[in-house]
């Protein structure tokens, strides 16, 4: 699999991160190396092998529907940037769309 500029562009958009040109080149190079490393696995024949979705033998680890310890609003907002109690805030992600016509 080839890691090209377009892929790095797409990944940075999906993760909402922005990079300089130099950083992008560096990331592209790094990712390509990682992928090549993992692609080594393709040399194995995995026909008939069930995909493994979980690595431990544990199953059915449940809790009962009983309330547990929560944290206070003050404690929750303590380390948050720009809190507007009782809210957390974030830069506006969307503008309200304007109806057509």
């Amino acid at each position: 699999m080839e890691v090209n500029e377009a892929l790095v562009e797409k990944l940075s958009r999906l993760s909402a991160l922005s990079f300089t040109k130099e950083e992008k080149m560096h990331i592209q190079d790094d990712l390509q190396k990682m992928i090549l490393f993992v692609e080594k696995l393709n040399e194995l024949n995995t026909d008939g092998v069930e995909p493994q979705l979980h690595i431990t033998d544990a199953e059915n680890v449940f809790r009962d529907d009983i309330a547990g310890k929560m944290i206070s609003n003050e404690a929750a907002l303590e380390n948050a940037p720009n809190p507007m109690p009782p809210y957390f805030t974030a830069t506006k992600a969307i503008q309200k769309p304007v109806p057509e016509n």
Partner: peptide, 25 residues
């Protein structure tokens, strides 16, 4: 009574950010 993966109350209409824990955050 509680959330899917932690013991915070699952309720509508409470004070914002009052039914939270380290897990839901």
């Amino acid at each position: 009574n509680t959330k899917l993966f932690c013991g915070d109350y699952n309720r509508f209409g409470d004070t914002p950010n009052s039914l939270i824990s380290e897990i839901s955050l």
